[in-house]
Simulated assay, not measured.
Amino acid sequence: MGTYRYKFQKGGFGLFLGIAAEATRLTNPPTMGVPVSNRVWLDASEVNNALYGNRLALNEREVAWLRVGLGKVSGDIERIETSPYILISVRALEIFEVDYAEAALAPAIAGWVAEKFNLTPRLRNVSRDSATGQFTFDWNE
């Protein structure tokens, strides 16, 4: 298991989030988690708050952001991994409450995967609409 710290700062906003996860290679479909692609699954059922040591209960939007980020790199994982199934289990998050934005979960898990599997990072740029607060990610697709 390794921790990846996603940091992005641009005039007027920043995204900061640490994520610790592990990859398990399986021969049968996982019994926990949700499929993100044909062979890559996500488990976010037992996530700890790395700063305070307590359990986090992620809401549906947070899990959806994790699925977005993992989905962006799942094809890359499938190209290099020979295991029939790869389960990515999120174990801990470092959430800085002042700067926390759920959207940071997507690039954080994608960055963790890129580091873990020695992949070229896909995310090129992040922008934020100051009127709506919505983030837009350029995934180099």
Results as ranks from 00 to 15, higher is better:
G69S: 09
G69I: 05
L70I: 06
L70H: 00
G71Y: 02
G71H: 02
G71R: 07
K72E: 13
K72V: 00
K72A: 01
K72F: 01
V73N: 00
V73M: 10
V73Q: 10
V73F: 04
V73L: 06
S74A: 05
S74D: 00
S74L: 00
G75L: 05
G75T: 04
D76R: 07
I77V: 11
E78M: 09
E78W: 00
E78F: 03
R79K: 11
I80H: 13
I80V: 12
E81V: 15
E81K: 05
E81R: 11
T82V: 10
T82R: 14
S83R: 11
S83Q: 12
P84S: 15
P84W: 11
Y85K: 11
Y85P: 08
Y85L: 05
Y85A: 01
Y85G: 07
L87A: 01
L87G: 02
L87W: 03
S89Y: 00
S89R: 02
S89I: 01
S89N: 00
V90C: 06
V90W: 03
R91E: 08
R91P: 03
R91Y: 07
R91W: 09
R91L: 09
A92S: 14
A92G: 14
A92K: 07
A92H: 14
L93D: 00
L93M: 06
E94Q: 14
E94T: 11
E94G: 04
E94P: 03
I95K: 02
I95H: 03
E97D: 14
V98F: 15
V98Y: 14
V98M: 15
V98N: 15
V98E: 15
V98L: 15
D99P: 01
D99W: 07
D99K: 01
Y100K: 10
A101H: 04
A101K: 12
A101D: 04
E102V: 09
E102P: 14
E102Y: 13
E102A: 14
A103W: 14
A103E: 09
A104H: 04
A104W: 01
L105N: 09
L105R: 10
L105T: 10
L105F: 15
